[in-house]
Design a protein around this nucleic acid. Structure first.
Length: 487
RNA sequence: GGCUCCAUGGUCAAGCGGUUAAGACAUCGCCCUUUCACGGCGGUAACACGGGUUCAAAUCCCGUUGGAGUCACCA
């Protein structure tokens, strides 16, 4: 069997959609699993939607996620150029289109947009039986008429000439054989009036020229696949293995769109997701490994990925589960890298001179995405307003009276104490607890409350006091005493 | 609306004719614990419906219903 060659062929029109990323990922994995070649090709045939920054987005995303291509615009592998607008310069798409015209598989069309629009309008007013497709009007033009029109400089497109009867069957690795009536096939445009090939055409030509063996794409292309198939056949080219992936949807089971808030890789990154989470999570949307396991690095995915296990039904992008997975990655991160992500967020919230690394450590097992950090540590900078009722905790057996007593008795001890390390404070507290024969919670709950002013905090009284230091800890405890006295 | 595809818990999903119908997220409860987390244990929860085929159907076939995708000189 020949070596596998897959390609990721994005068009630079904006952000990187997660559906696109998954397609790229599967293409990458299919190739890498078999030691094949993963090609990056830029499909910029739409001059109107082209946005230059999108190229950077594509490169950055690929790099960040680790989907490194073996061939591409920046890595010639002998199949270049890898940018369609550059390939176009040689006029090759037009040549190929003309080849089809000569074979009778395509034809020139001079219809105006106005005519096409009215055609569409009239077809919809019919009884619903009518199919909204081109009526092959220009197919009837004689060779002479075409020549004359061309000579006169009339704008034209070249359309595929599909049969009007019979059926076309193509094979997909996931969906099996799919058959459609040829009558359903529209004569799609191959070459646009601006001379550029359409995606549909350029895609087929380039895939063939680049020796692509597996064509992976979203299943929104399923309905146009028969037309591509006819193109391959018209040229007499070998049809690649089609792999149509199920669609990724939002929670309403609709195709994931920008408005969902997490439709692009950039959105996800901005929300505090790690690249490896995105890759891992998206890999599992529509595919599952044979072993019972969910956390996979890209390398591990390369090992176990088998595209025959891709499922057929659409998958909801469950942001809740994605967050869980991100939390798993965060917990498994080494401290150094964690700090790179966490510190900037912490700095936004904590302006005072505390040991931010210690704060980071506190928070590591308690967040799912990095912005979660903010609300967990806001009390460090400033003791929030809180209600004395917070001192009452049923399970800790605390109330405002015994809390006051504990704080009043602890205050002088803490004032004399110098060692405000976790261990130091702990030994002081434990000593007091032992002497008074109390449960830990009886004294630690009031302390933690006084020092944080919050119902829940990352870390306990020891950890918080260590970070706050002696002075600030005492200020807060005195404040607590004052509040309890006035209650 | 035409065409195409899809159909196991709320979500991701295992399952390929014989299972007590896995597992994960979420949810609920318990344990651990100075709070919250982490960790551990357990619970609730699914084969859309109707016909076949078969000794036997979540698994195969047909229909119904439901959902999605697609119908551009966009990709």
């Amino acid at each position: 069997m020949s070596k596998i060659r897959t390609r990721f062929a994005p068009s630079p029109t904006g952000k990187m959609h997660v559906g696109n990323l998954r397609t790229a990922l599967y293409e990458y994995l299919i190739a890498k699993h078999e030691n094949g070649t993963f090609v990056l090709r830029i499909e910029d045939t739409d001059q109107e939607r082209f946005v230059p920054e999108a190229l950077d987005i594509i490169y950055n995303t690929m790099k960040l996620t680790g989907l490194n291509h073996d061939e591409g615009p920046d890595k010639d592998g002998g199949y270049g150029p890898y940018v369609q607008s550059e390939r176009m310069k040689s006029g090759m798409y037009l040549e190929y289109a003309k080849e089809l015209v000569e074979k009778g598989e395509a034809y020139y069309c001079f219809c105006t947009r106005e005519r096409l629009e009215s055609l569409r309008a009239s077809s919809t007013t019919e009884d619903g039986k009518e199919i909204a497709k081109y009526d092959k009007h220009c197919l009837n033009l004689s060779k002479e008429e075409v020549e004359a029109n061309l000579k006169a400089g009339m704008p034209y497109v070249i359309r595929q000439n599909n049969p009007v009867s019979g059926t076309t069957t193509f094979h997909d690795a996931i969906y099996g054989d799919i058959t459609v009536e040829n009558e359903e096939l529209d004569d799609m445009i191959l070459i646009k009036a601006d001379g550029y090939p359409t995606y549909n055409f350029a895609n087929v030509v380039d895939d063939h020229l680049m020796g692509i063996t597996h064509v992976v794409r979203g299943n929104e292309y399923l309905s146009s696949a028969p037309k591509y198939n006819r193109l391959y056949e018209a040229f007499g080219w070998e049809v690649p293995e089609y792999v149509h992936c199920p669609i990724i949807t939002d929670e309403n089971h609709k195709k994931l769109a920008k408005r969902s808030g997490h439709a692009s890789v950039e959105d996800l990154l901005g929300q505090g997701f790690l690249p490896e989470t995105i890759v891992n999570f998206v890999a599992l949307l529509g595919w599952s490994p044979s072993e019972d396991r969910e956390i996979y690095s890209l390398k591990e995915l390369e090992e176990v990925f088998d595209y025959h296990h891709i499922s057929k039904s659409p998958a909801v992008f469950d942001i809740t589960k994605a967050k869980w997975m991100n939390g798993e990655y965060i917990k498994a991160m080494d401290m150094e890298r964690f700090l790179e992500y966490a510190l900037p967020v912490i700095r936004e919230t904590v302006k005072k001179e505390y040991d931010l690394t210690k704060i980071a450590e506190l928070v590591k097992t308690r967040i799912e995405v990095f912005p979660d950090i903010k609300e967990k540590i806001d009390f460090f900078d400033e003791l929030p307003e809180y209600d004395v009722a917070m001192y009452t905790h049923k399970k800790m057996k605390t109330n405002s009276e015994n809390s006051l007593e504990v704080l009043q008795e602890m205050l002088p001890l803490l004032e004399e104490w110098e060692d405000y390390s976790i261990a130091g404070i702990e030994s002081l507290c434990k000593e007091y607890i032992a002497k008074k024969e109390l449960k830990n919670g009886r004294v630690l709950w009031p302390l933690r409350t006084a020092v944080s002013g919050k119902q829940m905090t990352p870390g306990g009284a020891y950890e918080i006091m260590e970070i706050l230091g002696k002075e600030e800890s005492l200020v807060r405890i005195r404040k607590g005493i004052e509040m309890l006295e006035n209650a």
